[in-house]
Design a protein around this nucleic acid. Sequence first.
DNA 1: CTTGATGCAAAATATTTGCATGCTC
DNA 2: GAGCATGCAAATATTTTGCATCAAG
Lengths: 154, 154
Amino acid sequence: MVEYSFLLDELKRILKEKQLKFTRQREQVLKALYHNEGHFSPEEIHRLIQAESPELKVGIATVYRTLALLEEEGLAESISFGKAGKRYEIGMKKHHDHLICTRCGKIIEFVDEVIEERQEAVGERFEFTITDHTMKILGICKECRETMNIQEHS
Amino acid sequence: MVEYSFLLDELKRILKEKQLKFTRQREQVLKALYHNEGHFSPEEIHRLIQAESPELKVGIATVYRTLALLEEEGLAESISFGKAGKRYEIGMKKHHDHLICTRCGKIIEFVDEVIEERQEAVGERFEFTITDHTMKILGICKECRETMNIQEHS
DNA sequence: CTTGATGCAAAATATTTGCATGCTC
DNA sequence: GAGCATGCAAATATTTTGCATCAAG
């Protein structure tokens, strides 16, 4: 996993490059994504920031604006499925894909090298310049499967 | 590609099984998804139905309710990315994944057998009962790449 | 200081829900 | 006929935007 300080420097570098400003709010959004394992909705991130930095006022609009910025610059990534809506996580982790339990919402990250390689091939086949990809496998996780068995005995 | 009549029978079968009713509205949503190549937002589907069957009143709420039903039963699938929001397409096509051009929004469908196989392996590795999966490769399509070159000469 | 960023509230969207009425079965 | 489905409108939820003000560079 990347160091937080690296991401912070990246953010500063990007902002400088685009002549944008480094603000406490932008830093807080990045930090919230980094310091909390998981995949959050904009609203959850908003709440996280308020919990971590009660002294700092952060509007929900700023959270949206910042997430869009971070995603555009690759510092954050979004994933969405079913009713859960759009959720963000820190980008620039080691690349990975997701297993999502449709019952409890649990998200497991994984990487499969063979799949990674094949994607490149697909891009070439369609003369597509790949910038990113995501793969989601939906199903029922081990724990839920067990729970279901118990419940269905009744 | 599956026959429309097969999908229609499937829908009828499922509805009967769940003691739900087969209505013109439900049929229209399925038909709109089937007879229009593409990936539509609920609102677009609503418009398509109104265009195809002006005599039938269909509320947007019904479209949402029906799409949720179809998705739950596997007759429709949804995909979402970036600003485009949630889009639906007919399910039970031959399975495929998506290449999405982030510039023009074009969606290309593809299948790669190796990738398909590896997914099973991943499921087993995490003791996950796979019910579905989606893979999106984002990038710039051939046409956009060419257009960009031209424009950037200026 | 200059210019972009922010909070706030309002606006625009998107989605869901309650309920009287209409249609399947 | 009984009960689910529908349309409609209202209620929610989600995102975006305008603008006066604030703060980074």
